[in-house]
Nucleic acid binder design. Structure first.
Lengths: 338, 338
DNA sequence: GTGAAAGCGCTAACAC
DNA sequence: GTGTTAGCGCTTTCAC
């Protein structure tokens, strides 16, 4: 006698077969390929199954077919408000497509990300990796062995959906230039973040093109407190406006500025990114729109599509556009700061 | 030839057995019960496994043992900032205990919650259900068939961890009374929320004991916008202070008040609940502390404990205490409002 | 201490 | 159309 948990009275495919007077294969087919059976048979089997309260064991099916019907979603920090809307969209879309989703939070740690990926690999049909912090090689290694769709990470030959903030950030810089600011700063986000590189690059390029002096302030992560403390460095420059990697940092900057008696936007202009705080800051934050929920849904569509086509390695690349949302934290450059 | 996905070169227990010159049973034991094998054998098998890059197929193991090594976490709204810290703690603790976790988001819909629960049932060893919106009977029905730990929901005979806001809310009401407020309001949260019932009850009881007039404002959900719009109703009362179901609502109220030209806390006092916004509002919000991460970790401990003890139905009930965190949105009652 | 064998619940050739 | 059969990868009696 092998295994089996104690007190396990769940009906199996065999129970249904016996009760319906057919073979187990027929029961199986009644569910997976009803068109290959006499309509009457399907009906009878389904009725019996229903009556017995039968439901299929996904693990047995997975073992047999090699497909689990599960996906894994990997994010660096679920507590960052950028991710929850994306996670919700992903979970919902996956659910519609018949997949259940494992959630893996890496705490911004590439090693942990790698570990979780390999640990989940055998249990899922594919991965959505959002804002991966791993090296390109590590990502490639995984993508070779399993279907992967990246979000906000650019790696050649791997399917990805990218929230392209180039347009939004360009507008942000030009908005500032238009307001008369001559020197601006960019407060960076997570080091390994593709989004951060893109934004940084754009600020620099567009800023210089507009004849602005632009200072790059390094930032290791995204957090309110980090933004608040970065104000010291910020005021050490002679910038009169700042663009932050994201809204969390921008929000912190707002607070830090206020704490030092500066009034936004009279004395200083601030722009965020991702629009996750809506108008919930004070004053309401000027920011670059994001489309994280859409990005999540799109990622699932890509992944599900690939899994449907039997995993033929696709090189899909989907760009989601952004734009500047002007609220109340940007204004004309002050004559003289402070 | 049965199933199997194409191009599947993964080593199995059989591959390792052959290579190591032992039986498959021995390989299995080398992993699960090494003490029953000669140390040398274990060593050899493990070495071979390592060399071949073997890793166990969790699905096959699950099918055989009846335990999947997976848990499901069910939350009503992942985008509500109350949950992410809890989710992170749960995922991390589960990971430590050797479990992977499915995430299910119910969108505050009891029917969807029920559906997701049954759909995931066969794939997991147990559930953590946070802030369930289902009826007590529905919860009981699930708990009868699978190990369940509830968070912030009180159902007799089902293991649960409760963030007990009684103390914190009591302090909140007394704080307001001490500041001279004679009439206060409570803005409610989700209908089926246990937390909401508890807070509402406490405000009422303590308020009346302190001789205050307390008005109950109904609220269907938790959201910034809802709080903002609730200000109309709020000002229709003659209250000079409000306690909101949670910080999100309180934050919205702050904005709504400001929009009408009222100054907090000079003209009106506001208290939130859960402390999820830290000092990120303006002015910094007085609120009741929460301990959602702790609650999550505790839930996993309870669940893992039960699963270890072979699922003996426990009736654990863990209470987490709270207290008032006074910041800057509460002040002396105004002589006359406005 | 280790192997042989049966079985977990399901699917997919292959027959008829 | 439907049944037979042989596994998917692993665990666990039961012998030796």
């Amino acid at each position: 006698m092998p295994t089996r948990a104690p007190g396990d009275g769940k009906p199996t495919i065999g129970t249904v077969a016996a009760e319906a007077g057919v073979s187990r294969a027929t029961v199986s087919r009644a569910f997976s390929q009803p068109h290959r059976l006499k309509a009457e048979t399907v009906e009878r089997v389904l009725a019996v199954a229903q009556r017995l309260g039968y439901s299929m064991n996904p693990m047995a099916k997975a073992l047999s077919t090699g497909r689990s019907g599960n996906l894994a979603l990997v994010v660096p920090d679920i507590a960052n408000p950028f991710f929850p809307p994306m996670i919700r969209a992903i979970e919902q879309r996956a659910d519609q497509a018949g997949y259940a989703v494992f959630l893996a939070n890496t705490n911004e740690d590439p090693a942990r990300e790698d570990l979780l990926l390999t640990r989940l690999a055998m249990q899922v049909d594919g991965f959505v990796i959002a804002s991966s912090r791993m090296t390109e090689n590590a990502i490639k290694a995984h993508a070779e062995r399993h279907p992967v769709v990246l979000v906000n990470r650019e790696v050649a030959d791997i399917a990805r959906v990218l929230i392209d903030t180039t347009a939004g950030v360009t507008q942000a810089v030009e908005h500032l230039a238009g307001l008369g600011h001559r020197e601006i700063a960019y407060l960076g986000g997570p080091h390994r973040s593709w989004s951060n590189s893109q934004r940084k690059r754009t600020v620099k390029r567009v800023g210089e093109r507009a004849g602005l002096t632009v200072t790059m302030l390094p930032g290791r992560l995204s957090s309110y407190e980090l933004g608040r403390h970065a104000v010291a460095d910020l005021l050490a420059t002679s910038a009169t406006a700042v663009i932050a990697f994201d809204d969390l940092l921008a929000h912190g900057i707002l607070t830090g500025l206020t704490e030092r008696g500066l009034v936004v936007p009279r004395d200083f202009s601030v722009i965020g990114c991702d629009d996750v705080l809506a108008a919930q800051t004070y004053p309401p934050l000027t920011t670059v729109s994001s489309r994280s929920a859409e990005a999540g849904a799109a990622a699932i569509d890509l992944l599900a599509g690939r899994l449907g086509n039997d995993g033929t390695s696709s090189n899909d690349r989907l760009l989601l556009d952004t734009s500047l949302v002007v609220r109340a934290t940007t204004g004309p450059a002050p004559r003289k700061r402070r």
